[in-house]
Simulated assay, not measured.
Amino acid sequence: MRASPAMRILRAAVFAAVCLTLSAAGHQVASGAAPPVWADGTGFLAVLALGYLLSARERSLLGIGGAMLTAQGGLHLTFNAAQAPAQRLHAISTPMGMHATRMMAHPHPMIHAAAAHGAAALLASWWLRRGEAAL
């Protein structure tokens, strides 16, 4: 059964809000600085468009998880690119920024980041799938 355009935009908006909230909060915790508002807005619109394209039918947990990881990766790259060099220096001087700098010195920082993104995506995907099934 195909979803109506109104239902599709509602589902896409919830998906975009969850993705953006997870990514922006994670970025702020890791770097010590929130992404710029324009990057939040751009990211939300991009994920909203992706979510709308994928919302024509009910998605499985694996499908939602794949879209969630893709969206988080894109938002991660957008937020890093949007952060001005001066903000990066300020972020390093904060306690969380210093922690993030020490983490980068760790031999396997990507493993920690991938594990955090994976865990967040799995939890959010499960939550979104439950909502999808209830709807």
Rank of each mutant, 00 (worst) to 15 (best):
C19D: 06
A16E: 01
G74V: 06
P109L: 15
W126K: 06
A115R: 13
G41M: 07
S23F: 04
L61M: 09
L48P: 00
L61I: 09
A82M: 02
M7E: 10
L69N: 04
L69G: 13
L62Y: 06
P107M: 13
V37E: 06
I111Q: 12
I64Q: 07
V37T: 09
S4W: 08
L53W: 15
R2A: 14
A71W: 05
R8W: 08
G32C: 08
T70R: 05
H108K: 10
M103T: 13
N80D: 12
M68W: 06
Q87I: 10
S93T: 13
A124Q: 04
R59W: 14
A30S: 11
S55M: 08
G32N: 03
R57M: 02
S31L: 10
G74Q: 03
R130E: 12
A71V: 08
L50S: 07
A114R: 10
L75W: 04
P95R: 03
F79C: 02
H99L: 15
S93L: 09
G74S: 11
H106V: 06
Q72M: 11
L10M: 05
P5F: 10
A114T: 15
L53C: 14
G131Q: 00
L123D: 03
R88D: 01
Q28Y: 09
S4F: 09
L89T: 12
P95V: 08
V47D: 00
M110D: 14
A25R: 08
H112R: 13
S23Q: 05
L128R: 04
A39Y: 08
E58Q: 10
H117L: 09
T21A: 15
R2S: 09
R2L: 10
R88E: 06
A84F: 05
L61Q: 03
A39N: 07
T78L: 13
H117V: 05
P36Y: 05
T21W: 10
L123F: 14
W126V: 13
G118T: 13
